[in-house]
Design a binder for these strands. Structure first.
Lengths: 114, 114
DNA sequence: TTGACATATGAGAAAAAGCGAATATTCTGA
DNA sequence: TCAGAATATTCGCTTTTTCTCATATGTCAA
Protein backbone atom coordinates (compact mmCIF):
# COMPACT_ATOMS: atom_id res chain seq x y z
CA UNK A 1 0.00 0.00 0.00
CA UNK A 2 1.37 3.38 -1.01
CA UNK A 3 2.52 5.63 1.74
CA UNK A 4 0.04 8.37 0.84
CA UNK A 5 -2.83 6.03 1.62
CA UNK A 6 -1.33 5.13 4.96
CA UNK A 7 -0.95 8.76 5.80
CA UNK A 8 -4.56 9.35 4.86
CA UNK A 9 -5.67 6.47 7.02
CA UNK A 10 -3.57 7.49 9.98
CA UNK A 11 -5.06 10.98 9.85
CA UNK A 12 -8.49 9.52 10.41
CA UNK A 13 -7.21 7.51 13.34
CA UNK A 14 -5.59 10.61 14.67
CA UNK A 15 -8.89 12.45 14.55
CA UNK A 16 -10.22 9.80 16.91
CA UNK A 17 -7.09 9.61 19.05
CA UNK A 18 -8.45 11.87 21.76
CA UNK A 19 -10.94 11.12 24.53
CA UNK A 20 -12.94 14.29 23.97
CA UNK A 21 -13.29 13.70 20.26
CA UNK A 22 -14.36 10.13 20.87
CA UNK A 23 -16.97 11.44 23.27
CA UNK A 24 -18.22 13.84 20.61
CA UNK A 25 -18.49 11.15 17.95
CA UNK A 26 -20.32 8.88 20.37
CA UNK A 27 -22.75 11.62 21.31
CA UNK A 28 -23.38 12.31 17.63
CA UNK A 29 -23.97 8.66 16.88
CA UNK A 30 -27.53 9.01 18.09
CA UNK A 31 -28.54 12.33 16.67
CA UNK A 32 -27.55 15.78 15.50
CA UNK A 33 -26.47 17.99 18.42
CA UNK A 34 -25.73 21.70 18.65
CA UNK A 35 -22.32 22.97 19.66
CA UNK A 36 -23.82 24.44 22.81
CA UNK A 37 -25.38 21.18 23.88
CA UNK A 38 -22.14 19.33 23.20
CA UNK A 39 -20.28 21.80 25.37
CA UNK A 40 -22.82 21.35 28.14
CA UNK A 41 -22.76 17.54 27.95
CA UNK A 42 -18.99 17.40 27.91
CA UNK A 43 -18.64 19.94 30.69
CA UNK A 44 -15.59 21.50 29.10
CA UNK A 45 -14.43 24.94 28.00
CA UNK A 46 -16.38 26.30 25.05
CA UNK A 47 -13.22 27.24 23.25
CA UNK A 48 -11.70 23.84 23.73
CA UNK A 49 -14.70 21.91 22.47
CA UNK A 50 -14.88 24.26 19.53
CA UNK A 51 -11.31 23.40 18.64
CA UNK A 52 -11.96 19.69 18.81
CA UNK A 53 -14.94 20.23 16.54
CA UNK A 54 -12.64 22.05 14.16
CA UNK A 55 -10.37 19.01 14.07
CA UNK A 56 -13.28 16.70 13.33
CA UNK A 57 -14.48 19.10 10.65
CA UNK A 58 -11.06 19.33 9.05
CA UNK A 59 -10.91 15.53 8.84
CA UNK A 60 -14.48 15.53 7.58
CA UNK A 61 -15.71 13.28 10.31
CA UNK A 62 -18.51 15.72 11.10
CA UNK A 63 -20.51 18.26 9.15
CA UNK A 64 -22.40 21.22 10.48
CA UNK A 65 -25.53 23.16 9.73
CA UNK A 66 -26.28 26.64 10.94
CA UNK A 67 -29.68 27.46 12.39
CA UNK A 68 -29.77 31.06 13.46
CA UNK A 69 -26.86 31.62 15.76
CA UNK A 70 -26.63 27.95 16.60
CA UNK A 71 -24.56 25.34 14.81
CA UNK A 72 -25.72 21.75 14.69
CA UNK A 73 -23.23 18.99 14.23
CA UNK A 74 -23.72 15.50 12.86
CA UNK A 75 -21.59 12.66 11.56
CA UNK A 76 -20.86 13.06 7.90
CA UNK A 77 -20.73 9.37 7.26
CA UNK A 78 -22.18 6.82 9.68
CA UNK A 79 -19.61 4.33 8.40
CA UNK A 80 -17.32 5.86 10.99
CA UNK A 81 -19.46 4.10 13.58
CA UNK A 82 -18.52 0.81 11.99
CA UNK A 83 -14.96 1.65 12.87
CA UNK A 84 -15.89 2.28 16.46
CA UNK A 85 -17.95 -0.89 16.81
CA UNK A 86 -15.20 -3.52 16.51
CA UNK A 87 -13.02 -1.20 18.55
CA UNK A 88 -15.55 -1.51 21.31
CA UNK A 89 -15.30 -5.28 21.21
CA UNK A 90 -11.54 -5.05 21.09
CA UNK A 91 -11.11 -2.82 24.08
CA UNK A 92 -13.74 -4.58 26.14
CA UNK A 93 -11.72 -7.72 25.83
CA UNK A 94 -8.51 -5.98 26.74
CA UNK A 95 -10.08 -4.06 29.52
CA UNK A 96 -11.22 -7.29 31.06
CA UNK A 97 -7.61 -8.45 31.08
CA UNK A 98 -6.39 -5.19 32.51
CA UNK A 99 -8.95 -5.40 35.26
CA UNK A 100 -8.12 -8.97 36.10
CA UNK A 101 -4.46 -8.04 36.38
CA UNK A 102 -5.43 -5.28 38.76
CA UNK A 103 -7.49 -7.82 40.61
CA UNK A 104 -4.55 -10.14 41.05
CA UNK A 105 -2.37 -7.33 42.28
CA UNK A 106 -4.94 -6.40 44.87
CA UNK A 107 -5.37 -9.96 46.00
CA UNK A 108 -1.62 -10.58 46.17
CA UNK A 109 -0.11 -10.91 49.64
CA UNK A 110 1.41 -7.64 50.81
CA UNK A 111 4.55 -9.29 52.18
CA UNK A 112 5.61 -10.47 48.73
CA UNK A 113 7.57 -7.27 48.23
CA UNK A 114 5.55 -5.38 45.61
CA UNK B 1 -19.43 6.14 29.03
CA UNK B 2 -16.91 6.87 31.76
CA UNK B 3 -13.96 9.00 30.83
CA UNK B 4 -11.45 6.27 31.71
CA UNK B 5 -12.91 4.05 29.02
CA UNK B 6 -12.71 6.81 26.47
CA UNK B 7 -9.11 7.40 27.36
CA UNK B 8 -8.39 3.71 26.96
CA UNK B 9 -10.09 3.67 23.58
CA UNK B 10 -8.34 6.79 22.36
CA UNK B 11 -5.00 5.29 23.28
CA UNK B 12 -5.62 2.44 20.91
CA UNK B 13 -6.54 4.85 18.16
CA UNK B 14 -3.44 6.80 18.93
CA UNK B 15 -1.33 3.69 18.55
CA UNK B 16 -2.66 3.46 15.00
CA UNK B 17 -2.45 7.17 14.30
CA UNK B 18 0.87 6.94 12.53
CA UNK B 19 1.65 5.79 8.98
CA UNK B 20 4.60 3.66 10.01
CA UNK B 21 2.65 1.86 12.70
CA UNK B 22 -0.21 1.24 10.31
CA UNK B 23 2.30 -0.22 7.89
CA UNK B 24 3.61 -2.50 10.62
CA UNK B 25 0.15 -3.73 11.57
CA UNK B 26 -0.68 -4.36 7.93
CA UNK B 27 2.52 -6.28 7.39
CA UNK B 28 1.78 -8.37 10.47
CA UNK B 29 -1.75 -9.09 9.33
CA UNK B 30 -0.44 -11.86 7.12
CA UNK B 31 2.15 -13.48 9.30
CA UNK B 32 4.68 -13.14 12.08
CA UNK B 33 7.69 -11.05 11.01
CA UNK B 34 11.04 -10.41 12.64
CA UNK B 35 12.12 -6.93 13.65
CA UNK B 36 14.91 -7.09 11.10
CA UNK B 37 12.59 -7.95 8.27
CA UNK B 38 10.20 -5.21 9.29
CA UNK B 39 13.04 -2.71 9.23
CA UNK B 40 14.07 -3.90 5.79
CA UNK B 41 10.53 -3.79 4.40
CA UNK B 42 9.84 -0.37 5.81
CA UNK B 43 13.19 1.00 4.70
CA UNK B 44 13.56 3.09 7.82
CA UNK B 45 16.10 3.57 10.58
CA UNK B 46 16.43 0.58 12.87
CA UNK B 47 16.13 2.78 15.90
CA UNK B 48 12.97 4.42 14.66
CA UNK B 49 11.18 1.20 13.79
CA UNK B 50 12.18 -0.20 17.14
CA UNK B 51 10.55 2.75 18.84
CA UNK B 52 7.34 2.31 16.91
CA UNK B 53 7.36 -1.33 17.89
CA UNK B 54 7.75 -0.23 21.49
CA UNK B 55 4.62 1.88 21.16
CA UNK B 56 2.65 -1.02 19.68
CA UNK B 57 3.95 -3.26 22.45
CA UNK B 58 3.03 -0.79 25.16
CA UNK B 59 -0.51 -0.62 23.82
CA UNK B 60 -0.50 -4.39 23.49
CA UNK B 61 -1.31 -4.32 19.82
CA UNK B 62 1.59 -6.65 19.12
CA UNK B 63 3.42 -9.35 21.02
CA UNK B 64 6.91 -10.66 20.45
CA UNK B 65 8.79 -13.90 20.68
CA UNK B 66 12.53 -14.22 20.89
CA UNK B 67 14.32 -16.79 18.75
CA UNK B 68 18.01 -16.58 19.33
CA UNK B 69 19.02 -13.02 18.83
CA UNK B 70 16.03 -12.29 16.67
CA UNK B 71 12.65 -11.02 17.80
CA UNK B 72 9.52 -12.00 15.95
CA UNK B 73 6.46 -9.82 16.11
CA UNK B 74 2.84 -10.69 15.58
CA UNK B 75 -0.56 -9.19 16.26
CA UNK B 76 -1.71 -10.02 19.73
CA UNK B 77 -5.35 -10.05 18.77
CA UNK B 78 -6.52 -10.31 15.17
CA UNK B 79 -9.64 -8.39 16.20
CA UNK B 80 -7.54 -5.31 15.59
CA UNK B 81 -7.83 -6.12 11.90
CA UNK B 82 -11.58 -5.80 12.21
CA UNK B 83 -10.98 -2.24 13.24
CA UNK B 84 -8.88 -1.63 10.17
CA UNK B 85 -11.36 -3.27 7.78
CA UNK B 86 -14.25 -0.80 8.00
CA UNK B 87 -11.66 1.95 8.07
CA UNK B 88 -10.55 0.77 4.67
CA UNK B 89 -14.07 1.08 3.35
CA UNK B 90 -14.41 4.46 4.97
CA UNK B 91 -11.28 5.96 3.55
CA UNK B 92 -11.76 4.44 0.14
CA UNK B 93 -15.00 6.28 -0.10
CA UNK B 94 -13.46 9.52 1.05
CA UNK B 95 -10.42 9.05 -1.05
CA UNK B 96 -12.63 8.74 -4.07
CA UNK B 97 -14.04 12.14 -3.22
CA UNK B 98 -10.64 13.63 -2.66
CA UNK B 99 -9.43 12.25 -5.96
CA UNK B 100 -12.44 13.49 -7.87
CA UNK B 101 -11.84 16.95 -6.46
CA UNK B 102 -8.26 16.74 -7.65
CA UNK B 103 -9.58 15.57 -10.98
CA UNK B 104 -11.80 18.58 -11.33
CA UNK B 105 -8.97 20.90 -10.49
CA UNK B 106 -6.79 19.33 -13.13
CA UNK B 107 -9.51 19.44 -15.75
CA UNK B 108 -10.37 23.03 -14.95
CA UNK B 109 -9.34 25.61 -17.55
CA UNK B 110 -5.98 27.13 -16.74
CA UNK B 111 -7.11 30.69 -17.35
CA UNK B 112 -9.55 30.53 -14.46
CA UNK B 113 -6.85 31.72 -12.12
CA UNK B 114 -5.80 28.59 -10.20
C1' DT C 1 -27.97 50.33 15.66
C1' DT C 2 -26.87 48.22 20.08
C1' DG C 3 -26.42 44.53 23.40
C1' DA C 4 -26.37 39.89 24.42
C1' DC C 5 -25.82 35.27 22.96
C1' DA C 6 -23.61 31.33 20.27
C1' DT C 7 -19.69 29.97 18.15
C1' DA C 8 -15.09 30.32 15.95
C1' DT C 9 -10.30 31.79 15.61
C1' DG C 10 -5.58 33.18 17.03
C1' DA C 11 -1.58 33.43 20.17
C1' DG C 12 1.25 31.46 23.45
C1' DA C 13 2.61 27.95 26.92
C1' DA C 14 3.09 23.29 28.23
C1' DA C 15 3.17 18.54 27.18
C1' DA C 16 3.72 14.74 24.08
C1' DA C 17 5.31 12.56 19.78
C1' DG C 18 8.75 11.64 16.33
C1' DC C 19 13.38 11.28 14.76
C1' DG C 20 18.47 10.31 14.40
C1' DA C 21 22.93 9.60 16.84
C1' DA C 22 25.10 7.26 20.27
C1' DT C 23 24.96 3.56 23.49
C1' DA C 24 23.39 -0.60 25.86
C1' DT C 25 21.83 -5.41 25.91
C1' DT C 26 21.48 -10.06 24.46
C1' DC C 27 22.72 -13.84 21.80
C1' DT C 28 25.80 -16.71 18.77
C1' DG C 29 29.84 -18.65 17.03
C1' DA C 30 34.84 -18.90 17.05
C1' DT D 1 36.15 -15.07 26.57
C1' DC D 2 35.70 -12.07 22.55
C1' DA D 3 33.71 -10.15 18.17
C1' DG D 4 29.85 -9.34 15.73
C1' DA D 5 24.96 -9.44 14.72
C1' DA D 6 20.13 -8.22 16.12
C1' DT D 7 17.47 -5.44 18.79
C1' DA D 8 16.31 -2.06 22.46
C1' DT D 9 17.01 2.14 25.11
C1' DT D 10 18.52 6.87 26.12
C1' DC D 11 19.29 11.59 24.87
C1' DG D 12 18.75 15.96 22.62
C1' DC D 13 16.17 18.32 19.22
C1' DT D 14 12.24 19.61 16.34
C1' DT D 15 7.40 19.30 15.41
C1' DT D 16 2.71 18.54 16.72
C1' DT D 17 -1.08 18.52 20.03
C1' DT D 18 -3.75 20.33 23.58
C1' DC D 19 -5.15 23.72 26.52
C1' DT D 20 -6.38 28.48 28.16
C1' DC D 21 -7.00 33.35 27.52
C1' DA D 22 -8.31 36.96 24.66
C1' DT D 23 -10.66 38.37 20.73
C1' DA D 24 -13.44 38.14 16.53
C1' DT D 25 -17.67 36.94 13.87
C1' DG D 26 -22.35 36.30 13.12
C1' DT D 27 -27.29 36.45 14.68
C1' DC D 28 -31.30 37.92 17.09
C1' DA D 29 -34.20 41.07 19.56
C1' DA D 30 -35.15 45.43 21.32
Amino acid sequence: MPDALRRFKSEIFQALANPTRIAIVELLSEREISAGELIAKLGMEQTNVSQHLAVLRARQIVVNRKVGSQVFYSLRDPVILEVLAPMRRYFHQHLKEALSILDEIEKAPVESGE
